[in-house]
Design a protein around this nucleic acid. Sequence first.
DNA 1: ACCCCGGTATGAAACGTTTTAATTGATTAT
DNA 2: ATAATCAATTAAAACGTTTCATACCGGGGT
Lengths: 353, 353
Amino acid sequence: MTTIHDVAKHAGVSIATVSNVINNNAKVSAGTAERVRQAINDLNYIPNIAAKGLKTNVTRIIGVLMEDIRNFASPYIIDGICQQCENDGYHVNVDNLQVNRRADYNVDDTYGQLAKSGDFQTSVREALKTLLSARICGLIYLGTHPRDVSGLLPPLNIPVVYAYCYAEKPASSKALNISYDDYQGAQLAVKNIIRAGHTKIAIIGGLINSYATHRRMMGYQTALMEYALPLYPEYILSGNWSYESGHELAGKLFNLPNPPTAVFVMNDLMAFGVIDSLKGMGIRVPDDVSVHGFDDLLASRYFSPPLSTISLPLHEIGEKAAGSVIKMAENGNEASGDKFILIPCRHVPRASV
Amino acid sequence: MTTIHDVAKHAGVSIATVSNVINNNAKVSAGTAERVRQAINDLNYIPNIAAKGLKTNVTRIIGVLMEDIRNFASPYIIDGICQQCENDGYHVNVDNLQVNRRADYNVDDTYGQLAKSGDFQTSVREALKTLLSARICGLIYLGTHPRDVSGLLPPLNIPVVYAYCYAEKPASSKALNISYDDYQGAQLAVKNIIRAGHTKIAIIGGLINSYATHRRMMGYQTALMEYALPLYPEYILSGNWSYESGHELAGKLFNLPNPPTAVFVMNDLMAFGVIDSLKGMGIRVPDDVSVHGFDDLLASRYFSPPLSTISLPLHEIGEKAAGSVIKMAENGNEASGDKFILIPCRHVPRASV
DNA sequence: ACCCCGGTATGAAACGTTTTAATTGATTAT
DNA sequence: ATAATCAATTAAAACGTTTCATACCGGGGT
């Protein structure tokens, strides 16, 4: 490929001058600059970013380590990351951990067992090595459960941002965490159910020890309290995020002597199960019972009835993660301000409530 | 960061020897090799891939230019690309064109108007420049409609593979095209409808001039012929791939004096519209009428009734695209064999037929 | 005439690798 | 003992950039 030498020769100047024109550094006379630009055009010159990075020790590459690109949230977050990086003149290097393809992978793994397996850590280490061999100047870890990858990094002092998930030991980690606000989202959902006139509102949670389940449960309670509604213990159930568990728990819930008139389900997949179960029992949604989800899957809009749900600020999470990691990279890995950034969710009213 | 010099000093050898150990090139005595490996470990040495690429002129980076990461197919294809590249020891550089975010973007653009707009071409050129500045040794273009990006590349002789879409002028292009088999997939769908006992089978196509519509229509005809079923012109309709158009056309179709008993709809989104429209008219699916889709969206499994459909070999398209572009890169851009590789679709039987 | 100055332009070193050709030291053949 | 062979190691050049220190040049002040 054309190099800076070719351009220099073609323009009749030194390579130093060409470099100065490209980076408009030092003073180059207007005429010379024009000649150089002409040559660059003529020869289709594209600077070699590797050589530049080698010399300057600044690559402007952000590494993205993601657990599973096929997660419904990943594409939107990556889209946000790409956009922000492009804006700021950074490159993106993606590495997919392919967690989903692992034999020991289990969707229900809220406890992060997987993350503790030596095998998984080897994968992460491998992926990090790949990323670091490109001399990334910042890392975004895009996962679902709390993780700690900084321990797997060589002691490098490159900034790490967790997106969509959290650092496992947030207190001890200097990493930034960027996600959506479970607490606020759940409140939003429940308040909307209340405003639709319900007072007997059940909740179906995800795995009991997960952070998300915990936070959303808090949001539910806060919303009820704010409207001075009672909290019925028998209305509080926990599933495992799957369609099947929603289906099963709905059965229990609506065989109670005094069943609720609405359910806040902590994700759309379980909500589908709930609604199908209700249909099976001859209970109509929303006429007899309202159901509210969380996640806003594409499927939710086409479900029957279309599911009222909470949509996550995925694009913004990506943008913010990239913006933050870039800022940290440029400021010597110093994060300014809070280590937890929670972006609010939006409410998507549809027919199921 | 640690360099090869640090390792050499720590191990008491020359940098050449370290390099030889890393790439196990020349003969290095077992003892020396062990000492070097120890040093690499002690110092957490990770080779600088940019320096290596600079020297060897081989980067082992595959560039992926994608129109829209948020397309339902993209994550699966990228997953396949990543897996194959990892297997072959290649890096992946992703660039997202963000086509969907453009003001002039239009989902219905089968004619590729967008691709002809100077503005779009500027974006592509910009993205290619970014990719080429990393000295990628192969390019995968991941789009939906026929495109021609090779004209936008400087005359470089790097291999280009179109995945999921085709080169606009396949004859004149030396690029490889890898996608799924529309023709076979459509046949699969229609034959399954026929085997379920239907003889009056309508079809709702996508935009009339699109390649996919054309090929799937052929598949439909072939299947009918194979079973010696008549082709009713009034059963052949075309929409624009949207939910709404499916909804509308179903209305027309089932107000015919002699309506069909089954419909093959060319994508799942339109099929949703069709089914909802039928429900509205009090026609039951599948009891009164069967509906068959194409694409296998996640939503289709949860639709009511769950949609029988055709699933696309997305992961394989990615794998194959990466595998091919790598092979070409290693063989001086010479593709071996056919320039069109169509991977068969699979049938996903569910309750709607 | 001389010196100095400011504005431009450039030569050369350096970044972290690979690779070729050369060097070393030991062993074998004469 | 000397020459030839061989295996193991290394010095140094090169890849395409940036950048620092230096060089050039024409003009204004002495």
